[in-house]
Amino acid sequence: MPMHRFFDPMMFVPEVTYTLIVVVLCLIIYLKTREIYDLTKHRGIYYFRNTFLFFGLAYVFRFFFYLFHLTQMALQLDIPRRVIGPASLVLTGYLSTMAILYLVYSSLWKRLGDKKFLILSNLAAAIISVIALMTKSPYIITIAQAVLLAAALITGYFLYKKSKKFYELLVLYLLLSIFWITSLLNLGQRVFMPFELRLGMQLISIVVFIIIYLKVAKWAK
């Protein structure tokens, strides 16, 4: 028999804290890079800073989806479920897919060109969101994003075979995406990992965001 999530109110505090810290870090990164982008209109900077706008928003809507489950299963509050739950799921899927694609593309755009990227990325994000809406499950988003990430990594490997710096970035971006994907897994009905492990992953995820923030802060003063 599958083990179902038990919504311990004690889990709520780490979840709120985690979401708040990540969203604030994403917002700071987005705002700190505004002047640099404004002065240069550089495509790479555009993709990079929008990654964090999308990630920040995705974490907000992920939290709404979490709240939706929490109120449904623990508090029995009367909220318009037919709207809030699916809408949060669709927006989480769309924004996070865009964030992952923009993140990878911020480094690959020079080699691949960016004429059709906007159309293709929006299309991929929209398809994933619609499938997630139809299945009413975040799992489809995790699978689709894992596939996209794998494809992006393979492309990056072949395009930047000789760049040591790119590999360092790739590790950072990979961790960022993996932590996002595992955070989505924890939104479903089944319990995929114990509370302690989940908390540990959230802490490491925050460390990754802080490392990126510090790298940004070094240059975007």
């Binding site: 640099i36 550089h42 790479g44 900077i45 790298k215």
Partner: peptide, 15 residues
């Protein structure tokens, strides 16, 4: 004034 910082930022993230 910002040029060196801009170059550093672009280089840091391989943009």
């Amino acid at each position: 004034e910002k040029y060196r910082l801009i170059l550093g930022f672009i280089d840091e993230f391989e943009l």
